[in-house]
Nucleic acid binder design. Structure first.
Lengths: 242, 242
DNA sequence: CGTAGGTTTGAGTCGGGTCAAGAAATGTGG
DNA sequence: CCACATTTCTTGACCCGACTCAAACCTACG
């Protein structure tokens, strides 16, 4: 039995033995609860530790001078924030909890050392960073070349896939706990228009939605509408060399 | 005197001694010319080597089923493509030369070994990857929350800054060798509308343009119009620990 | 209850897309 | 050195997807 999100995550990028799993567990001793709407990282702050989402949802975002907010990443359990924070003097985007969230505060030195000790873990961390990178590119394609309905469908498809990847066996839910405004901020749309898109998707029985969240009813249809290809989330991997 | 783009680039992320500089030079022995419009990497291909842009401009892009193209990154001299290509079975985006380009083909093992040998170089590579990451996020903000004129202004500002960073001392030019269509594909706009934006910017004497490229006349004005803050390209760095 | 955060609705506007044609550069071959 | 093909840029008319503004409506929760 393994319910630790970091272990689940890293095992997509490598094989871990018991000792490595235990070391990862030991890494996450300082866990704090963050209420919805509270900042985990503030824009402009010095980052002195790595944040790991243990449960709940968070978002990395930027607020422009005119007050507009753009979400640049949605963070799910197992997602590491600012893994290389020791290299940066200050963070240029904030991170906020979108649901009640549990966050592990990790000392960067501990991670660095662990990566050094275990080639497997180092490899898996690099792997996570690659996937993150691919996800950012997928978002750019989504925002640049798809209409609103397709964009929403694509984003929800991505989130369904990512939830399934970190959910303990078979426990995957199809509920996305984001408000329409948060979806809008992630996709470069307005809340009003996301609302209209949501109505259309509900009309086609692809999703249902209630205050504070969406439920995916027909994932294949959603993927088709968004032109979604999940390859970037779990690309076929080549194992680390010896 | 140092005219090697990779060395120039890495020295933003670390200090290098003569031996390291020489090792980097030795890395780039297999240099090939790529004509404008020719693919450096094809979507779906297996990546078996790392590409380093030695001179010229290239773009990473994705073509959607309906034929629309979205550029997800513009690559300048010193930019490494798919540094971690050994981990991926196949690439999910293509790379094409936007101008006549010289590309160094590097064996991944050679890079990995060099990173291992020199902590400085390893540090600098991680640094490059951080900056790339930050640039992707800046693009998402740009596409999501800025109007067309601002977007173009922001992109040109970024490119001016990046050119200056890799140009041999004081040789920075203010010429961006991209067609209006390429700008459009990078920003999620249509060529027609980029043309109209270009006219507006010319009207304000902020840029001039001719077939196949733009010249920046008034960089501060451009930065102001785009709400550009270049911090993400060269964030204040914390040196590697011993 | 009352309030605040979230959703829904409607009317009106506009930024940017679409389509199509033409003009200017550049390149190519004879 | 000229005729022709190709790219790239430009222009105009029209349209539509998404934004704006503003009000009303829920619903969870204190």
């Amino acid at each position: 039995m393994n319910d630790h999100p970091l272990i689940t995550r890293l095992q997509y990028g490598c094989r871990l033995d018991d000792r490595e799993r235990q070391a990862l567990r030991d890494l996450c001793t300082d866990v704090r609860d963050v209420a919805r709407g509270v900042n985990i990282v503030r824009d402009g702050e010095k980052a002195d530790h790595v944040n790991l989402i243990m449960s709940g949802w968070a978002a990395r975002y930027k607020v422009l001078p005119d007050g507009a907010r753009q979400i640049t990443a949605l963070l799910l359990p197992g997602d590491l924030c600012d893994l290389r924070c020791t290299m940066l003097a200050r963070i240029d985007q904030g991170i906020t909890a979108l649901t009640p969230t549990r966050v592990a505060y990790i000392v960067p030195q501990a991670i660095n050392q662990l990566e050094h000790t275990s080639a497997q873990i180092g490899h898996a961390m690099a792997w996570c960073s690659l996937v993150e990178h691919a996800t950012l590119r997928a978002w750019i394609v989504n925002m640049g070349r798809r209409r609103a309905v397709e964009r929403v469908a694509h984003l929800l498809s991505e989130l369904a896939e990512r939830m399934a990847m970190v959910a303990p066996n078979g426990m995957a839910s199809h509920f996305v706990p984001l408000t329409q405004e948060e979806i809008a901020d992630a996709l470069g749309l307005t809340p009003v228009h996301v609302n209209r898109v949501a109505q259309e998707l509900r009309g086609q029985a692809v999703i249902s939605s209630k205050r504070g969240g969406f439920t995916i009813l027909d994932l294949p249809a959603l993927q088709a509408m968004g032109g979604f290809n999940g390859g970037y989330l779990n690309p076929h991997m080549i194992p680390a060399a010896a």
